[in-house]
Design a protein around this nucleic acid. Structure first.
Length: 592
RNA sequence: GAUCCCAUAGCUCAGUUGGAUAGAGCAACUGCCUUCUAAGCAGUAGGUCAUUGGUUCGAAUCCAAUUGGGAUCGCCA
């Protein structure tokens, strides 16, 4: 039982004994005592003043006394208004700390038996990754790690939207204007190479559509009349028919893209256990839809298209198979869900996908319910907000995007410049220095994105480089590196079973308190699927250590016991910082 | 038109199941490196928690309305 739970139980007992009021211990509010008051935990007693028929101050004193009398670890208490602040004994803190230092994986929950399949990344194969994917990857990776730390079995999977009109557009432009070029001949990363032709397609289509638009036609309609669109459309149909030359070209261009993606994933430390491909799932999706049509879950329109009706659920009708018999986006997701369910038999299917698709996943869930699938209710759409540029939302078609690879390169460069400026590379060989730039640059980028609650929109200004000071990953990494430096200097065994320290410094207690919160932080982050909980936790812990470091000496105290104890405390802090950052996919340097 | 999301310091964000005087970082200003790494620490200044009403001992937090911003409602993905 945690100390909070103990305090809840005892408060319920106190209320029963003192005022003959029976309450559920879970309803007792126990908070961390704010910094400007004395104490560690605070019990709120306002709710019991009526039953006690006394003022809050009086009730606080009585309950405080009861708690102090009945809790071994209670040292003292004070009452401010209706708040009872409990001070705990040094013995409690030492015991807490001893427990943590002996548990390398403190914070990790025991196995829950819950199995989760988590989908993330989900790129289209017609263009390179951008800042939106970066947020997706960081959030997905972090949430997976956090759920794992909370005891769940997590299977990370990816989905490639590898077929359809957008890929056909890149193909059409390449056939139209590529002259047999390859990424090698063009000197481009594969995904950028294919993306170049996607942008080129849009240029050509815009040019060809100009006369129609001048007649007042909508751009989307005008595009459909262009020869380049006709070619893309033709590829799409021939692809569905399985025409070998089209399949061959498709495979080649997708192959280039996958090579490019792999490089970026590798750079970012992003991985997945299994990839699904739309091209391999849409037929299963169609089959399931047709089964639904046969058993009356869906209906057909006169033109042959297949629909689901959600008007009873307050939504619209939704097309599932087009009148030409081809599948739409949701059709593949039906097939993917089915495959994934049978691959992993998970207890939950998490989809890390942007909030623009909230409606899509609502419909997907309802569609699977209509099909009577057991996994319909396992679906959880973990959505994140769009990334805004100062000018507004990113738009791929207009080339208004922040490219992932460019951004990574800029971060490494920023990290290098600042590191050199501070003269931190002294004594490092070029390889070590490069490693450090990467740890710091990518750490700063990941932290910048993950410290914001994933569901909120994120503002990114490409003209202002991401800070390396303040509320950032390097701040936390710096605390870690400082501690590593101390440990190198100390160079003795400090894992003693007992610390005969009678006078714990308040800042030492603060730090132990902060370290001990890691378990709760993981729990909260997992429950809310929110990496920012961990990001903020790590920052608070680092700050707490930095303050102690500035005010007290860790290893230059006159008495050896204090040195040993503080080094152990620093060691545990570093370990916790490292573990916390690891959950965010962020590395730590030994020196910086 | 309908559904959903958001609104906290100049800027970017925290703020637990409702709890004390709403907190950080950046930017501005002031101190602190002969002692363990100054990517740090301490301090000053900065707020009508969008507005109004309601529930409550207590509301940034819950409810309603209003205002402003955004997303979605494609035989795009």
């Amino acid at each position: 039982m945690t100390i909070e739970q103990t305090l809840q139980e005892l408060t319920a007992q106190a209320v029963k004994t003192l005022y003959n009021l029976t309450i559920d211990p879970h309803t007792v509010t126990v908070n961390d005592t704010p910094k400007n008051f004395v104490g560690s935990y605070t019990v709120v007693v306002f709710p019991y003043t009526k039953a006690a028929a006394k003022n809050p101050e009086q009730v606080g004193k009585e309950i405080g006394q009861y708690l102090t009398d009945n809790l071994v670890f209670a040292q003292d208490f004070n009452v401010v208004k209706g708040f009872v602040n409990i001070e705990l004994t040094n013995a409690y803190w030492l015991q807490t700390f001893t427990h943590i230092i002996h548990h390398e994986n403190y914070g990790q929950a025991p196995a829950s038996g819950k199995k989760i399949a988590l989908e993330y990344i989900g790129p289209n194969t017609n263009k390179p990754l951008h800042l939106g994917h970066i947020r997706n990857m960081f959030v997905g990776h972090a949430v997976a790690a956090i759920l794992q730390a909370n005891g769940h079995e997590v299977h990370k999977v990816n989905i490639y939207n590898d077929k359809g009109i957008n890929i056909s557009k890149s193909m059409a432009a390449w056939v139209h204007a590529g002259n047999g070029a390859t990424p090698q001949s063009a000197g481009l990363k594969g995904d950028h190479f294919v993306g170049y032709y996607y942008v080129l397609y849009n240029k050509i289509a815009t040019q060809q559509a100009a006369p129609y638009r001048e007649q007042g036609m909508e751009p989307l309609e005008a595009e459909k009349l262009t020869p380049i669109y006709a070619l893309a459309q033709q590829f799409t149909q021939e692809w569905e028919q399985g025409k070998p030359s089209v399949r061959q070209l498709w495979q080649t261009m997708n192959g280039w893209v996958y090579e490019g993606f792999a490089e970026t994933f590798n750079m970012l430390g992003i991985s997945y256990e299994k990839a699904y491909y739309e091209s391999e799932c849409y037929e299963l999706g169609k089959k399931l839809v047709l089964e639904g049509l046969a058993n009356g879950a869906f209906f057909a329109k006169p033109d042959g298209s297949v629909w689901a009706d959600f008007t009873n659920e307050g939504l619209d009708q939704k097309v599932l198979i087009r009148n030409d018999g081809t599948s739409v986006y949701i059709t593949q997701d039906i097939g993917v869900a089915d495959l994934r369910y049978h691959d992993f038999t998970p207890d939950q299917l998490i989809y890390v996908v942007g909030d623009e698709q909230i409606y899509h996943f609502k419909v997907l869930k309802l569609t699977l319910q209509k099909l009577g699938k057991p996994y319909a209710n396992l679906i959880y759409h973990l959505y994140y907000g769009m990334v805004d540029l100062p000018e507004g939302k990113m738009k791929s078609r207009e080339g208004k995007v922040v490219d992932a690879d460019d951004l990574i390169a800029e971060m490494l460069q920023t990290a290098e410049e600042q590191t050199r400026e501070l003269g931190k590379t002294e004594g490092m060989n070029p390889h070590q220095a490069q490693q450090l730039y990467k740890i710091l640059g990518l750490g700063a980028l990941k932290y910048f994105i993950l410290k914001v609650n994933a569901q909120k929109r994120l503002l990114f200004n490409p003209r202002e480089s991401i800070d390396l000071q303040g509320h950032t990953a390097p701040f936390i990494q710096y605390s870690y590196a400082r501690i590593r430096s101390i440990l190198r200097k100390f160079n003795q065994n400090f894992l003693l079973p007992n610390y005969p320290i009678n006078h714990l410094h308040p800042q030492e207690i603060d730090l132990i308190t902060e370290i001990s919160r890691f378990r709760q932080a993981i729990h909260t982050a997992a429950e809310t699927y929110d990496p920012s909980v961990i990001a903020n936790y790590a920052f608070t812990l680092a700050k707490s250590f930095n303050k102690l470091y500035a005010d007290l000496s860790v290893l230059n105290n006159p008495d050896e016991q204090t040195n040993t104890f503080r080094v152990a405390l620093a060691y545990t802090t570093a370990r916790t910082l490292k573990n916390a950052l690891h959950l965010l996919g962020i590395d730590v340097p030994e020196r910086m």
